[in-house]
Simulated assay, not measured.
Amino acid sequence: MRKRPRSDASRQYVVTGHYEPPADVPRPAPAPRRRRRIPRWAWIALIVAGVALVVTAIALVVSLVMNGVQMLTARPPAVGTAFVAPDESKAARAAAAGGPADELAAAEYLAAQPTAYWLTPEQDPIGSVGPRILDIAQEARESDAALAVVVYGLPGRDCGNHSAGGLDEADYETWTTQIGNALRSVRDVKKVVVVEPDSLALAPQCGNVAERVEQLRGAIGRLTGTDTWVYVDGGHSNWLGPDAMADLVRQVVGPGVRGFATNVSNFNHTYDEFAYAHELSERLNGLHALVDTSRNGAGAPADGEWCNPPGRTVGDPSGTYGDDVVDTNLWIKPPGESDGPCNGGPAAGVWWPAGAVDLTRDATR
């Protein structure tokens, strides 16, 4: 059988295994490729997933911000802590009222100093005390500062001395409950609470230690909460000895108590109060402390006078000092408020222009 000669194209296929038609032979057009449409359900799933991703990212950012705020407020007070200077202070009210130049200068200076605000049932009664805390908390929030308050309304307060008063048992429970509820509602501000100055150190003299302990433990339970740093009465270095004072403090401390406050409304040098705080802390398993430096710039008078002694001056500003025991110093007693009707002063807690001028004579020159 005679073989047909192979074409150039067939020869190419034999050699290369790939057929290419001659250049003069028209090539068929490729079949059009069909575009696949994404189902509607897939689009919906993609959108939902995208929205979920955005929401998750926003939630993460918010969580990080809130955790950052909580970390800042959850830290105890320390050197450098900024405390609010309350607009409601008596110094601020005196400054707003005006008066002679020296009295106005003293009031304006003291109104600008970060100082604890004293909650008393006479000034902030049941029904008003909660809103008062919220107002001060808002001021602290706006100034990026910590809130510091003193709770001072115990039944039989001050054992009938110059600061006598307070509430009966039932009203005291209601009042401190309202304070605690307001404090717990504030979550973005550091809160420092000094509970009933002099209440423990005076108890042996008043003969009501057991009653005081019960009252204070109840109040502490109602006041404590998240990011609230509670300090009980610790007396001062020229009063009860560290052993006696530690025995009293030990009876009231429990969960939620950060430590004790010393030198409240007194004049002892900061160095002496730090040493005393360390002695107390050693007896109280490392409990921490605050030291009041509001009026100790000239130290305590030699005669031991505690009621409006002349010649005193304001001390170092809040947040200046601290160590491993003393969280920091704080102006707890508002300078310019009288200790009582003694040495020319008015009733306890009343604004005393002449006393304010004397205390700030070096600071306002």
Score class of each variant (00 low, 15 high):
152 Y>M: 06
170 A>D: 15
133 I>S: 08
266 N>L: 01
169 E>G: 01
37 R>D: 03
269 H>T: 08
217 R>K: 14
253 V>A: 02
178 Q>K: 05
273 E>L: 01
85 A>P: 15
15 V>I: 12
30 P>R: 05
225 G>I: 07
249 V>G: 13
64 L>A: 09
104 L>H: 06
48 V>R: 06
261 A>E: 04
299 G>M: 00
107 A>Y: 11
37 R>K: 13
115 T>K: 05
108 E>K: 15
43 W>F: 12
269 H>P: 03
236 H>V: 04
12 Q>N: 06
278 H>A: 04
41 W>H: 14
167 L>Q: 07
68 G>R: 12
150 V>E: 05
284 L>T: 04
83 F>A: 07
209 V>A: 01
231 Y>H: 11
41 W>K: 12
245 M>A: 05
277 A>G: 06
250 R>P: 09
257 V>E: 07
213 V>Q: 06
229 W>A: 03
353 P>W: 07
31 A>T: 10
95 A>H: 11
100 P>H: 11
212 R>Q: 14
266 N>T: 05
193 V>E: 02
244 A>N: 10
181 N>L: 08
246 A>L: 01
151 V>A: 11
112 A>N: 10
134 L>Y: 05
229 W>V: 03
256 G>V: 03
16 T>S: 15
34 R>L: 13
348 A>V: 05
266 N>P: 09
34 R>H: 15
62 V>S: 05
188 D>P: 10
137 A>G: 09
243 D>Q: 14
324 D>G: 06
262 T>N: 11
286 G>F: 04
80 G>W: 12
233 D>A: 07
137 A>C: 11
168 D>L: 02
240 L>M: 09
355 G>T: 06
200 L>K: 12
130 G>S: 14
174 T>D: 03
10 S>D: 13
14 V>W: 12
219 A>Y: 04
112 A>V: 02
56 T>E: 08
